[in-house]
Amino acid sequence: MNLTLKIWRQKDKATPGQFETIEAKDISPDMSFLEMLDVVSEEAQKKGFEPTAFDHDCREGICGMCSLVINGVPHGPEAATTTCQLHMRKFKDGDNIVIEPWRAAAFPVLRDLVVDRSAFDHIQQKGGFVSINTGGTPDGNAIPIAKQEADLAMDAASCIGCGACVAACKNASAMLFVAAKVSQYAHLPQGQAERSRRVLAMVEQHDAEGFGSCTNFGECEAVCPKEISVRVIAEMNRDYLRATLVGTNS
């Protein structure tokens, strides 16, 4: 099939970008979306044009590196799917496809469709951990954890840190990302000692990075490739307010 792509091109952080229209010819429906872009890039290089830069790595939906807002939806039209797992059979011959980078003040564009998501790392560095050193830990079965709680923790922990929640949010809020981490630890006994400090520190960093506030639209959970529920945001809000109003326990 043949497609018309409107792709965002931008040289670097400082230079303003613009859309470029590219015709993609002879695209196989069995290609993944990124393989389609590979083919387009190879063709462009033959003609002397620099390939479009886009983030990607594992191409099996788990590393969280791939991004792209495709026709207005982060990771494209298929639910619970990363861009690398989206296949061209979801499109029709002759389609126009607009491809944009994640757009947020906290995620500056580095080149073309590549954005800098280190804001997520900064948030994690403020509290996304249990403060223990290697060694000297009790036996793995020393503290029983109810299966239901372990499952809820795992639901939240499945976040791949791709940033689609930020990209989809009208306010470029990263609440789903932060809350997923907060919720994971809140459901585990190992996370209790620092529960209050963690939520305060991570939200404070979230705000400092320039993300917006949660607007409770639910777009984030709709585009989340791992289908993380906004339940975790409610849990985080409760923890945050409790830590603020009742005081910290650590």
Binding site: F129, V130, I132, T134, G135, T137, P138, D139, G140, N141, I143, P144, I145, A146, K147, A150, D151, A153, M154, A157, Q184, Y185, H187, L188, Q190, G191
Partner: peptide, 18 residues
């Protein structure tokens, strides 16, 4: 032991064991 202490959500039995 290390990973459990870090909060890695390993699969659990109903009794709470790994």
């Amino acid at each position: 032991d290390q990973c459990v202490a870090q909060g890695v959500p390993f699969a659990r039995e109903y009794g709470g064991n790994l």
